[in-house]
């Protein structure tokens, strides 16, 4: 039923999957807005802070200690002793929808816009 020689339809399929992948990559970047609140989720705790109020947070989750700083309308991971340090190198986030994750610690830092009716999916 299928041919056994690669043909044009294969290319069409490959191209479509490629486009889908690129779209999924770019979509989060396109739907960003101004951020207002920072939500930290770890273990079964959820903490919410305003982006406008500067503070330094010390979080311990899954035995990993992290220092999260909120300042100048941005939030980032200042220090962490997790094995991969991806969170540390994630940079600073400030737009709604932006997320920093520390998978070993099970920590999620997300910025959400104040009037957004879109909730982040719990989990």
């Amino acid at each position: 039923m299928h041919s056994t020689k690669p043909n044009l339809r294969d290319l069409v399929i490959a191209a479509s999957v490629l486009l889908l992948a690129l779209f999924l990559l770019l979509f989060p970047l396109l739907s960003r807005g101004e951020g207002k609140t920072v939500v930290l989720t770890y273990g079964d705790k959820t903490e919410t802070y305003l982006l406008s109020e500067s503070r330094t947070l010390e979080i311990t989750s899954n035995g990993i200690h992290l220092t999260v700083k909120i300042e100048g309308g941005e939030v980032w991971v200042e220090d962490a002793d997790c094995p991969d340090l991806v969170c540390l190198h994630s940079g600073k986030i400030s737009k709604s929808g932006d997320v920093i994750l520390c998978v070993p610690a099970g920590l999620r830092i997300q910025v959400i816009g104040g009037d957004n009716d879109v909730d982040f999916v719990a989990g």
Binding site: H2, K5, N7, R9, D10, I13
Partner: peptide
């Protein structure tokens, strides 16, 4: 009955 080959 897709006409693509097994690649697709």
């Amino acid at each position: 009955r897709a006409k693509c080959s097994f690649v697709g």
